[in-house]
């Protein structure tokens, strides 16, 4: 699990950002990336891998590894660590590879 240091907790309480994560309401701090918000909410993994279908979570937090892929507001394969969490955002688990949209 991850936790917030008091400064982060205080900022969250002063200006909570409400997100929906896999259907559940989650609050994060203004300025948190989606991946940071997931970690702080107690989620270590955010997707199932395309080849072996095993759980995987954010790894590098700097846009390099693409392990933090999630579906954001219906858009699959978004890098959770590179997207700032915004009020009302709907974040869903990325299940395997993205499907081709026609």
């Amino acid at each position: 699990m991850f936790k917030r240091l008091p400064e982060s907790e205080a900022q969250l309480n002063a200006h909570p950002v409400a997100l929906k994560v896999n259907g559940m309401e989650v609050f994060c701090r203004e300025g948190d990336s989606v991946a940071a918000a997931l970690f702080a909410a107690g989620l270590l993994d955010c997707r199932d891998t395309p080849v072996k279908g095993v759980p995987r979570g954010p790894f590098c937090m700097m846009g390099v590894c693409f392990d933090c892929l999630v579906e954001i507001n219906g858009m699959p394969n978004q890098q959770g660590c590179m997207v700032l969490a915004k009020p009302g955002m709907n974040i869903e688990r990325q299940l395997g590879a993205r499907e081709v949209q026609t």
Partner: peptide
Amino acid sequence: PGVITGGAAQTLLKSNAIVP
């Protein structure tokens, strides 16, 4: 899940004050 890079941990500390 549960294994992250040292740099990732530091990013979480610097930008978010989030720690394991």
